[in-house]
Nucleic acid binder design. Structure first.
Length: 576
RNA sequence: UGGGGUGUGGUGUAAUUGGCAACACGACAGUUUCUGGUUCUGUUAUUAGGGGUUCGAUUCCCUUCACCCCAGCCA
């Protein structure tokens, strides 16, 4: 539960499992988890679920959750990703020194892992195989088909040891040989058909440099890293289900050899987060960045945490969303609208209300008074900063005889149920006056049609502040910005990056569903003067339009975080 | 094709030992409102299909079907 929102926290089968463990005295009531990203890309919304599952579970049971970089592949990893991950994790709400101690690295265990590998070799449980990788793959067999044992499978221990040591020493080329666990080439689980433990890589590792020529695979590194750190509950996503046998097998061998306690960490899998209109493959996200389809990892359309941050999503709303969707083993896809509802709920409470006109149309008040100098008078009107929070107070805004409204807020020929400004109709300008449309000017749009260039209105001086003394009502209250006082800004509007609910479903290629017009950049937008002081990165509500985030780097650039719910848009949609 | 996993409204998540299918998002209809926002109210499902046990089945049994994962020297 949160104070911003009383939607309940969903059930969580992992939590139930930990409760059961505690009742049975497993792990002596200790709970330790870990969040193990590979530093080969940026954290995204899918990671946010894993992060909250790992950290919040530990927190709930007064346990520990470490950040551990699963950095076992030098080819794809980079220190810059390590830094970005730490930063994004902190933004999400999990900070070094508060929520976890020092970041840990699988690469810190390379020596131990190596020693244990030698031990398995000595016990006849691992061997060096110098067959090419496609042959090894072929020999693995297929679903329902038998595997074929490698001709090197029964190589003498001494020879294995010698070769493995020379692998480490860098005597061999990449891909020329591997260390394999000797398990069972007929196992019905493919992961158990003599899996690879070590491969040779000449590349430079972001932390160990060129100290190592051989690198452990995920399977050989992961469970052992968990055990070294004292992890009790190793939580991961469903696709690792078939790896669990292997996870347990390695741990058992080491426990039997007296290297590890028999109380082993236990892997539990849960369904990964999937969202409609969203793609979270790190490889493909990288492709979007490299091909310039987006501005970068932190483009406001990206599902990365840095993208969502630029977009204006509050970190709290992401955490609340993750708590709400729960943890299960069901493959499912949440609607992006659900995430957005958490964003709106929180922003509705927090965001200051401001007025901004995105597509301006000029309005002239024909009966506006002038002062002694013959200049139009300027009236200061008071506006509420946030009707949801009185403590946010009020502000003053200038109003004069010329102002901007949205082009959508005037129709010369209004459709049914149109409440806004139209010839002969009176509307309220928020906090200012009632005005009545008396006419409009047009010009030839060059296509045989006409464009409205200016709207003429009269105002009722008795309605100052926005109320009529005679109590008469209007159908619409509109936002406005004084023409003489407006500040200008660029505003980016976003559609979904992928227009299909399930990107790639139709053709098999997610990039076919990429919306080429997912960003519309509006320039020359008219903002009320107060907005010039918006802190970088802050999110405000442009009244009647949506929530907008001031760019963290570029002043006077705003990103639409999410629109307001829009009943009028629904009415129009229904009419086709 | 062998193994593993999962099926509850448009969507996601619930439902003590078998006992009135609940909550939220969305949609729709109202209500409130100086934001077509917000608020509040109502409507929106017989639990993948078929059998069986039972007074009673989302829950137990049998069976059929659908979807997801596994044959990287990625994680």
């Amino acid at each position: 539960m949160s104070d911003a929102d009383d939607r309940p926290t969903a059930a969580n089968f992992v939590r139930d499992l930990v409760h059961a463990d505690n009742e049975q005295g497993t792990f002596a009531g200790r709970v330790q988890t870990r969040f193990p990203p590979e530093p080969n890309g940026y954290l995204h919304i899918g990671h946010a679920k894993a992060i909250t599952v790992d950290f919040e579970l530990a927190k709930e049971f007064n346990g520990v959750c470490n950040l551990r970089f699963d950095d076992t592949n030098p080819d794809t990893e980079d220190a810059s990703y390590v830094d970005a991950i730490i930063e994004d994790l902190a933004w999400l709400g999990y900070r070094q020194g508060e929520d976890y101690a020092e970041p840990l690295y699988a690469s810190d265990y390379f020596e131990q892992l190596y020693l244990w590998a030698e031990l398995l070799i000595e016990q006849g449980k691992a061997y060096v195989d110098e067959q090419p990788s496609d042959l090894i793959s072929e020999q693995r067999g297929g679903y329902g088909n038998p595997g074929i044992e490698s001709p090197h499978r029964d190589r003498p221990v001494a020879e294995n040891l010698d070769l493995f040591r020379r692998m480490r020493a860098g005597e061999f080329d990449d891909n020329s040989m591997v260390l394999r666990a000797k398990i069972d080439m007929q196992h019905e689980n493919m992961q158990m058909r003599d899996p690879i433990m070590y491969r040779i890589r000449a590349g430079r590792h972001h932390r160990t440099g060129d100290a190592w020529k051989i690198y452990p695979t995920y399977d050989w590194a992961h469970g052992q890293s968990d055990a070294i750190e004292g992890v009790t509950h190793s939580l991961c996503t469903l696709e690792f289900d078939s790896h669990r046998d292997l996870y347990d097998w390695y741990l058992t061998q080491l426990a039997d050899a007296g290297e590890l306690p028999h109380e082993q960490p236990r892997q539990t899998e849960f369904a990964r987060l999937a969202l409609t209109h969203t793609m979270t493959s790190k490889r493909k996200l990288l492709q979007l960045v490299e091909e310039g389809k987006v501005d970068g990892w932190d483009d406001a359309r990206m599902p990365t945490l840095s993208g969502l941050r630029r977009r204006g999503y509050p970190a709290e709303s992401i955490r609340e969303f993750c708590a709400f969707i729960g943890v299960s083993r069901t493959n499912s896809r949440n609607e992006i609208e659900l995430l957005e509802s958490f964003v709106r709920t929180r922003l509705n409470k927090l965001a200051l209300r401001r007025m901004a006109v995105l597509r301006p149309l000029e309005v002239v008040v024909t009966n506006w008074p002038t002062d002694e100098a013959g200049e139009p008078e300027v009236h200061q009107v008071e506006l509420v900063n946030n009707p949801e929070n009185e403590a946010d107070g009020t502000r003053m805004a200038p109003f004069s005889g010329r102002f901007w409204i949205e082009q959508d807020d005037f129709r010369a020929d209004p459709p049914p149920k149109y409440f806004r400004l139209t010839p002969g109709r009176e509307v309220r300008l928020r906090g200012a006056y009632f005005v009545t449309c008396t006419g409009f000017e047009t010009e030839d749009d060059g296509n045989g049609g006409e464009t409205v260039t200016r709207v003429l209105v009269t105002y009722d001086p008795e309605t100052r502040g926005g109320n009529a003394p005679d109590g008469r009502k209007v159908k619409s209250t509109m936002h406005w910005v004084s023409a003489a006082h407006a500040v200008e800004a660029d505003v980016a509007l976003y559609e979904r990056l992928f227009d299909a609910e399930v990107p790639g479903e139709a053709t098999g290629d997610v990039f076919d569903d990429l919306d080429a017009h997912s960003r519309e950049l509006l320039t020359g937008c008219k903002l009320e003067p107060e907005l010039a002081d918006t802190p970088l990165g802050a999110v405000v509500q442009f009244e009647r339009l949506g929530y907008f985030a001031h760019d963290p780097d570029q002043p006077m650039l705003f990103h639409r975080t999410v629109g307001l719910r829009d009943e009028w848009a629904n009415i129009q949609k229904r009419k086709g």
